[in-house]
C-alpha cells in the first residue's frame, strides 16, 4: 500500500498532531506515504470560479499521476474538493480541454488515472478492520466517542462514495475496533459550522455549539474527528467558553493509542 500523502493547507500549519499521528499509525500498518510538492486543493476558489478551482485541483491530480500514485488525504474538505474536480472533469469535456491546456502550460497532464482516497475508507477497507483489530494492543475500553464524519466524506455520495450517506457505519466500526464505544448522536451527520465561519460567524458558532451540546447530551466523552476543519472548529468554539466542553480526539490518535503507540508519537 503506497499513496501520495495530500495534507492540504490546514494540517501542517494548524494541526500538526494530525500529520504526526497519521504517519505513526500508517507507518505501523505498513502503508507507505510519499510526499509530493502539492498545492492547495482548490477549495477557496470554489467561490470565485469553477474553472479556477478545478485547475488547482487538477494540478495536484497531475502531480500524483506523474508519480504513478493514488492520493490519500486525511482532510475531508480536500477530499471532497478533489473528488468534485474529478467529477467536473469527467462530465464536461470543454472544461477538461481548458484545464488540460492550463496544465500543459506548467508541463503537466492528467489522463484520469489518479484515484483520490480518504483516510477513513483506506483504514476500514484497504488496510481492513481485521488488520486494525490485530494491531490493537491497548484497547480504549470504556471511552465513549462520537464519530464526526464530516460532510464531504459522505455527501454527495455519488462523488465521495465512502459509505451510505444516510446511514453510514464506517466511522463507528473504526471506533469500535479500538475498543472504544461509538455513541449514537442525532447530529452526527451535520455540518460542523466551519465553512460558514467567514460568511456568518454567529450562525456558524450556533451550528458548532448545537453539535457539541448534542454530543454531550448523547453521553460522549470525546468527539472523534477525521478532518482538520471539523477538529479545529470544535476546539476554536470551545476555547475560552464557559459552556460544558467536550474533548476532541483525532481518529489517528485514538487508533494510535489503541495500538499502544506512545502518546508523544501521536502528537498528544
Amino acid at each position: 500500500m503506497k499513496y501520495a500523502l495530500f495534507l492540504g493547507c490546514k494540517i501542517p500549519s494548524r494541526l500538526p498532531a494530525y500529520e504526526t499521528s497519521l504517519r505513526a499509525v500508517l507507518g505501523h500498518l505498513g502503508v507507505t506515504l510519499v510526499d509530493l510538492d502539492f498545492n492547495c486543493c482548490g477549495y477557496p476558489a470554489r467561490n470565485y470560479s469553477r474553472d479556477a478551482f478545478v485547475v488547482a485541483a487538477a494540478h495536484n491530480l497531475a502531480l500524483a499521476e506523474r508519480a504513478g500514485l493514488d492520493l490519500l488525504t486525511p482532510c475531508t474538505c480536500c477530499f471532497g474538493t478533489l473528488r468534485h474536480a474529478i467529477r467536473f472533469l469527467d462530465e464536461d469535456v470543454e472544461l477538461r480541454a481548458r484545464v488540460s491546456q492550463a496544465l500543459a502550460a506548467e508541463g503537466l497532464a492528467w489522463s484520469g488515472k489518479t484515484e483520490v482516497e480518504h483516510l477513513l475508507p483506506v483504514l476500514a477497507r484497504t488496510v481492513g478492520i481485521d488488520t486494525l483489530a490485530a494491531a490493537v494492543r491497548a484497547p480504549r475500553t470504556g471511552l465513549r466517542a462520537a464519530a464526526q464524519y464530516g460532510c464531504h466524506a459522505l455527501r454527495p455520495s455519488d462523488v465521495t462514495g465512502i459509505d451510505n450517506p444516510a446511514a453510514p457505519t464506517m466511522f463507528e466500526t473504526l471506533i469500535s475496533v479500538t475498543g472504544a464505544t461509538p455513541v449514537d448522536w442525532h447530529m452526527r451527520l451535520d455540518c460542523c459550522g466551519d465553512p460558514l465561519h467567514e460568511a456568518n460567524a454567529p450562525l456558524s458558532e450556533h451550528m458548532t455549539r448545537a453539535k457539541i451540546a448534542d454530543a454531550l447530551e448523547s453521553g460522549a466523552e470525546v468527539i472523534c474527528t477525521a478532518c482538520p476543519h471539523c477538529h479545529l472548529r470544535f476546539d476554536a468554539v470551545q476555547a475560552g467558553s464557559t459552556d460544558p466542553a467536550i474533548r476532541t480526539l483525532l481518529y489517528t490518535q485514538l487508533l494510535g493509542l489503541a495500538m499502544g503507540l506512545p502518546a508523544k508519537s501521536l502528537g498528544l
Partner: peptide
Amino acid sequence: ASCYQCQE
C-alpha cells in the same frame, strides 16, 4: 455551508 444535505 456546502454540506450537501440538500443535494444528497
